[in-house]
């Protein structure tokens, strides 16, 4: 198993390098003087010249890339001039907030999506199945940002159950309870679509698995139906559900950009949008590479989970 993980990590190296190339090339499309773009409103001729020297921006493209990569490998993502602080510090701080939100959301969508899918399949064409199918249909059609706004109106403004936005209360907050109260709405809104997709897929996978001969064998042994469904069938269905969990994690991470805006969550999605609007290119570049790299590593974890579940995968 250890060797399998190592092999997967090594095979991820070219992908990670490719990501840096792609991000670098996209950023190189910026028309005009990149140093001026980076500095934005701080672009005095003096500053531009200094930055050009600092970043080696005068050289040819490949030279600039290698220099940037060299710094990157040393943990130096550059400096945000708008924020006047190292990009890595800002990215780490904001990414940890996103991780809380997206992580909670991912757990929600995985747990409820799989639960709903299994119940739906086990009661195919029954009331529960129809109700779940209907809710799922609504869930996957509501844009997350609109759902978030409607939740704020209902639960924060009308019912006053939950705080409107932010991660912690400004006064007197800061403990875990406070965080959870702030987390409920954004995490739920963010999870909605993914929950629907996972529920659908789990239902389909369960229906497929329940027709297999080994399910009949389990029933013929006298295994209790509850265990047939939640043990034998679900375990086999997970083989096709887990890759989808990996894909949905990417969608949750993407949706976080909207949700962080709606709920003013101090995450990396909001940071990127602000940075784009302020033309803080170094910050965008660093943030995108960082998150993409994390996502690649996450997908390796998904593959490892899959190989743990399915002994037929050669490790």
């Amino acid at each position: 198993m250890g060797r399998y993980i190592l092999r997967r990590l090594i095979s991820a190296v070219p992908v990670l390098l490719g990501i840096t190339v792609i991000v670098f090339l996209i950023m190189a499309m910026i028309p005009g003087d990149p140093a001026a773009a980076i500095l934005g409103s701080y672009a005095t001729p003096d500053n531009v010249a200094r930055l050009n020297r600092e970043l080696g921006l005068e050289g040819p493209l490949w030279q600039r890339y290698l220099l940037w990569l060299w710094h990157l490998l040393h943990g130096d993502l550059g400096r945000s001039y708008a924020l006047n602080r190292p990009v890595l510090d800002e990215v780490l701080e904001r990414f940890s907030a996103t991780l809380v939100l997206a992580g909670a959301s991912f757990i929600l969508c995985a747990v409820f999506g799989i639960l709903a899918g299994v119940v739906s399949a086990a009661r195919q064409y029954g009331f529960a199945d129809k109700a779940i199918t209907f809710v799922v249909l609504i869930g996957i059609s509501v844009p997350a940002f609109f759902l978030g706004m409607m939740m704020i109106l209902l639960f924060a403004v009308d019912l006053r159950w939950l705080p409107v936005s932010g991660m912690y209360a400004i006064y007197g907050g800061g403990d875990l309870m406070d965080l959870l109260r702030h987390l409920i709405m954004p995490a739920t809104a963010l999870a909605a679509v993914a929950t629907g997709v996972i529920a659908r897929l789990t239902r389909g996978a369960m229906l497929e698995v329940l027709r297999q001969d080994y399910i009949r064998t389990a029933r013929a042994k006298g295994v209790h139906e509850r265990r047939v469904i939640w043990g034998h069938a679900l375990r086999a269905a997970m083989v096709s559900v887990i890759p989808v969990l990996g894909i949905q994690a990417g969608f949750v991470l993407s949706g976080a950009v909207y949700i962080e805006t709606v709920f003013q969550w101090p995450g990396i999605g909001r940071m990127l949008v602000d940075a784009i609007l302020k033309r803080d290119i170094v910050l965008v570049q660093g943030g995108v590479v960082f998150v993409a790299a994390c996502y690649v590593l996450f997908n390796i974890a998904v593959d490892v989970a899959q190989s743990l579940l399915d002994p037929r995968i050669k490790t």
Binding site: V15, F251, V257, A292
Partner: peptide, 25 residues
């Protein structure tokens, strides 16, 4: 296909944001 796989390794919105960042809103 190697290149396509690399593009698909991004959470889609990151790529979109990077492009918008480069081209401008």
């Amino acid at each position: 296909m190697r290149f396509v796989d690399m593009l698909m390794a991004f959470p889609y919105i990151l790529l979109a944001l990077a492009i918008v960042a480069a081209l401008g809103p």
